[in-house]
Every structure is written in C-alpha cells, then in structure tokens.
Write a protein that binds this DNA or RNA. Structure first.
Length: 271
DNA sequence: TTCCAGGCGTATC
DNA sequence: GATACGCATGGA
C-alpha cells in the first residue's frame, strides 16, 4: 500500500479507486459529497466513526484521508476500503468475459466496502422497493433519532409506531421484526457470518421483510461474502441480456464484486 | 394524475 | 413453484 503521513493527514496513492463509484453506487447510504477545493470530497462513517476523504483530481489516483492517524488508517480505513485486496488482478480475471471487461473499464474505480453487518441489515431492509435518495433520507433520520446509526442492542424493543418519524412506510414493521429476532437470541449476526453462504442466506430470509435480494446484500456488503450475488431488477436485466446460461467461470468466488461493476454499468452507461 | 423506486408477503393456482 | 397484486412514501 502506497501511503504518506503528512500534516496529520494520510495521503493514499491508489489507482483502483474512485470515490464517486465506490461511495455513491448504492452499496452504502451514509456518505455525502461535500463542497471542497478538491475534485471530490465525501463525509461519512464506518460504525459511527467519522471520516472526511478527498480525491485530489479526477482519475488521478491520489486521495487524502483528513485528520487520520497512520494507526487508524491501517486498522480502520484501509480495511473498510478493502485496500488489502488486489482489484487490478480481480479486474484482469473478470475481463476474460466481454461484458465484464466493458463494465470494469467503465467503472474501474469501484471497490467493495467492508461495512458493518447490523447496519447493512437495517439499511437493506429499508432499501426494498425504494429509491436511493429516499433510502438515504430514512437512514439519516434514523441516525438523528439515535445519535448515530443504532446497533441491535440500541434498537431493542422498538416498535413500528416509534419508527414512524422515519417515514419508512411498510418497512418499519420489518425493522421491528428484525430487531426482535436478533435481540431475542433467536438469530445471531456472528453465527450467520460463519455459515456457508447458502445457509446464512436462508437464515436471514426467516426474518419478515428479508427476501433473497436483501439477504444477499447483507452477506455481500455487511459480511464480505464475495460469492453472494444480489439479484435486483437491474441485475436481472443483465442476466437476461448477457448471461442467459449463467455467469462465466471467471467470476467464481467473486460474483458479488462482479455484480458491483455490472450494476453500475447497466444502470448508468446507457448500454 | 399516474408511475416508479437496489423487493417482499400473501393469496391463488 | 410460479404468477399477480398490494404496499407507504415522495419525487418525477
């Protein structure tokens, strides 16, 4: 990893990263672009730990992690941004497939964030039949209500009615059920994390409001289960159009990361 | 006004 | 197991 410590900031040189593509692609909902002197600056959180991060110029590969110690960078942010994974190698492997090659070229700055599992559980339940700006709004109000993103313990006993200020609609009842199942001891995030992907997915789907897509999102984004492949409306279009006979062998074990490139490609590249 | 949004539960066959 | 339909909410 190529970093420098400078005036209390960490400077990172990383070719395979774009803040727009990674922080604003629908895998995380708590990052906001803020005005700055740089090409792009985002403010956001991992587990309620705040960060301001800048991309110096478009596709320049130079990033500034503001006011971050080297220790915190290496222990928290390098992990969160998945900087220990070689995306160049990954993209070369994916590029055996023609569609994926185009997707990787189009959105080569995407990385899979290693997010908190409980936060992803709540967030992706809220994401169903909803659009990204409104998902962000609901989560923002949730964080306001609890002074940061609440974990299961903090949410224990919450009712749909108490969540009504979030304007989450029918999803509030799903949150209520989810919290009850995970705080009663009936389900355990850390146990699900250890299960094989198919079994963990089944366990998650026993929660009211968690279906195949949300379960896979929780595994992919919240448990770094890279073989989870969430099939939303956009990815269904990709599959019908490019992969009617299934995904190519070159994505084996990394279906979820491939999904990120394909999702961004089909959604914004007008192909 | 109507339609749609990173789906899912329920009813019905 | 497959398919149709409603669902809270707010922006287009």
């Amino acid at each position: 990893m190529d970093i420098e410590v400078k005036n209390g900031d960490i400077i990172l040189y990383e070719k395979d990263l774009s803040l727009d593509q990674t922080l604003d692609c629908g895998q995380a909902f708590r990052w906001e672009s803020v005005p700055s002197a740089y090409y792009r600056t985002y403010k956001g959180y991992y587990k309620n730990i705040p960060l301001t991060v800048s991309e110096e110029e478009k596709d320049g590969g130079k990033f500034i992690f503001h006011n971050v110690s080297e220790k915190d960078f290496l222990e928290i942010w390098a992990d969160y941004f998945d900087l220990y994974t070689d995306y160049d190698e990954l993209k070369r492997r994916f590029s055996e497939d023609e569609t994926l090659r185009a997707a990787c070229e189009y959105a080569g700055g995407i990385r899979l964030l290693r997010q908190d599992a409980e936060e992803c559980l709540i967030s992706f339940i809220l994401s169903q039949n909803n659009n990204i700006p409104r998902i962000k709004g609901i989560i923002n109000r949730l964080c306001g209500m609890y002074d940061g993103f609440p974990d299961m313990k903090r949410l224990a006993g919450v009712t749909a009615e108490e969540l009504s200020p979030l304007r989450a609609g029918f999803r509030a009842g799903y949150i209520e059920d989810c919290v009850r199942r995970f705080t009663s001891g009936e389900l355990d995030v850390e146990k699900i994390r250890l299960l094989p992907t198919a079994e963990g997915r089944k366990a998650l789907m026993t929660v009211k409001g968690i279906g195949p897509k949300v379960a896979s999102c929780v595994q992919l984004f919240g448990m770094y289960r890279t073989d989870a492949y969430p099939e939303d409306v956009w990815i269904k279009r990709v599959n019908e159009r490019y992969y009617p006979n299934g995904l190519p062998d070159c994505v084996k074990g990394s279906e979820g990361i491939a999904q990120q490139y394909l999702f961004h490609y089909i959604r914004t590249a007008s192909v």
